[in-house]
Design a protein around this nucleic acid. Structure first.
Lengths: 231, 231
DNA sequence: AAAAGTTTCAAACAATTGTTTAAATGATGA
DNA sequence: TCATCATTTAAACAATTGTTTGAAACTTTT
């Protein structure tokens, strides 16, 4: 009620972005929910793009700082020894899940973030790449020290897969509900579940890249003629 | 080669949807790329929503039929015995990856599909739920027969995580490039990598929250009486 | 060849988009 | 107090959106 117009707009935008997507959310929807004038967005942020950037930057910077802090804490506790893979995973994904458990805005934001990694919009991607540069460098280094005999490319793929699992764990609960009735209200349980899955995937035997898949069916697009529609 | 206007529109829409997203792709962009008149979309499909639906239905129906066929083939080969988890994963995700390797439209579509699972748009979600109903029922049944001791909820979560990894494996290559220079041109290698990761995650030890209440959640102590495994 | 049915086309439609303007209101400091 | 700054407001802006129209062009059937 007595909060700043600027933060009211940020909160409203965050909430609406995750519900309708970036493009489908209009400035009028945002200002209506924020109880502000339409022109307030352009006044306080300059443009819709700048608003989107502000929405992400507000929490993403803090999130990645937490990740680095967690990693540093592990490293210092270990006294310079290479970390366990489990610790690195914990530092990166654990922090994310814990933020997603925060009902006070963090949950909303993490859902939004998960949906945005694969966002096709150009400026969002470049913005994310920029914002992630440092944390990626740190974690890559930690991993290569922890598992020196795992090929770099192999690890990067697995990290990528893990990001996908995280994304779905946090933001894909709608798709999850497709599978059946599911309880996603317990953050601790989600944390334990995802951690177990991630570590299992990370520690899986390295694939024999030369080996071929079992089945040989060649994928072929289906061209099913449909009934003509009436005009 | 003179292709149908209807098909040209479908192809153009598919390609543009994955590049710009559903909302940001305009009918004028589509008809321009398809070398058709603007009114052609509404003439052949009725509306933009109906076009989107047609784009998905064209290949998704076929994909899920392939999945069911692969599952049935495994079941018949096994003579009624419960399948191995690995076979079920292979039937569901293997078919998807193989379609994603098909350069003739399948690749484009799978990227689009992966990005759309978490799409906030209401009608897309309900449409996908409808289109997936049968294949989900079949695979759930197969899994519960294969692993009767694994709690249903636990499996559904892992399946969900696997969907996330698949989605990123196929469509999140932009986010992947954020991590560093990576070669994603070899479908066989991707197949092997993702399979290894998925099986590893699926067979990871059950998390404490789940494993505690049930003492013997281990399905088969047959070969290795070592650690507790989910599968 | 004439008729009937499909498909294409250019043009316009109302609605909605992000953005801008200029005046009104509020707050702050000399 | 007055003056200066920051914020809010209603109205309008040009551009773009999906959709519709009615006539032209093309196919197929009679």
């Amino acid at each position: 009620m007595e909060t700043d117009t600027r933060t009211r707009i940020l909160d409203a935008a965050e909430s609406l972005f995750v519900r309708h997507g970036l493009d489908a959310t209009t400035l009028r929807m945002i200002t209506a929910e924020a109880q502000a004038n339409l022109a307030a967005v352009n006044y306080h942020f300059g443009s819709k793009e700048a608003l989107i950037e502000a929405v992400f930057r507000r929490r993403l910077t803090w999130l990645n700082e937490q990740r680095i802090a967690a990693l540093t804490a592990f490293e210092e506790a270990g006294g310079g020894a290479p970390l366990k893979p489990r610790q690195i995973v914990e530092a990166f994904f654990g922090v994310a899940i814990r933020m997603a458990a925060d009902r006070n805005g963090g949950q909303t934001f993490m859902r939004l973030l998960g949906r945005t990694y694969t966002e096709p919009t150009e400026f969002v991607r470049t913005f994310l790449a920029e914002e992630y540069a440092e944390v990626i460098a740190r974690f890559k280094a930690a991993f290569f020290r922890a598992l020196p005999d795992v090929p770099q490319e192999e690890f990067l793929w697995r990290f990528h897969f893990m990001m996908g699992a995280l994304s779905y764990a946090i933001s894909g609960t709608d798709a999850l509900r497709m599978l059946g009735p599911i309880d996603d209200s317990d953050p601790e349980a989600l944390y334990a579940r995802l951690m177990s899955f991630l570590i299992g995937g990370l520690r899986a035997p390295l694939p024999d890249v030369v080996a071929k898949p079992v089945a040989k069916t060649v994928a072929k697009p289906a061209r099913k003629p449909r009934a003509k529609r009436a005009a």
